[in-house]
């Protein structure tokens, strides 16, 4: 991936991320999140992870975000009232975030292996869908089945939760 694209997409991703947390209107937040996820998918593609990029678009930017928007509109949520931010939350959040970023920088600066460029691939084109599929159905078969059960349980749970009688 050319560095220009990386810079562009990561900058866009972070900008839309900022937009998510600054917008008071949940619909605007959700749409910013979709944009951020699309940029993230572009970064995935740039890392030769085409399958992950595609399901990022399909599942996240598609299905999950549609669900979010649907719920926001179902509940007819208005924009948050313009209230002064809780000082404690502001300060605490800023402090924790800053500390985290500082720690991250420290790690990166002390991680010389990470400063090397990405090694070249040994093949002309990756068949990553096949590779991921092989990995899932051979080495990770049991976790895969387990996740299937988890999804089933979650869907049953959602049905139960959304019944009217629930008090």
């Amino acid at each position: 991936m050319s560095p220009i694209l990386f810079w562009a997409f990561s900058a866009l991703m972070l900008a839309f991320g900022v937009s998510v947390i600054l917008n008071r209107d949940p619909v605007a937040s959700a749409l910013s999140l979709v944009a951020s996820f699309l940029c993230l998918a572009a970064l995935f593609v740039g890392l030769d992870a085409f399958f992950i990029g595609v399901i990022q678009v399909l599942v996240y930017a598609g299905a999950v975000m549609v669900l979010f928007l649907f719920i926001i509109m179902l509940l007819d949520l208005k924009a948050e009232k313009r209230r002064s931010f809780n000082k404690f939350a502001l300060l605490g959040g800023a402090a924790v975030t800053a500390l985290f970023v500082a720690g991250l920088l420290k790690v990166i600066s002390a991680f010389p292996a990470g400063a090397k460029p990405f090694p070249a691939l040994g093949v002309a084109s990756v068949d990553d869908v096949r590779q991921v599929g092989l990995a899932i159905f051979t080495r990770f078969n049991l976790p895969f089945q387990t996740v299937g059960v988890l999804v089933l349980v979650a869907s049953i749970g959602v049905i139960v939760l959304s019944r009217r009688q629930l008090k």
Binding site: F6, G93, V96, V101, L104, A113, G114
Partner: peptide, 20 residues
């Protein structure tokens, strides 16, 4: 050229944004 650290930094910043 791009390094792993670029991505890790972008990832960490995104995470911090989420936490904020």
């Amino acid at each position: 050229p791009l390094t792993l650290n670029h991505y890790l930094l972008a990832s960490g910043l995104l995470f911090s944004l989420g936490f904020a």
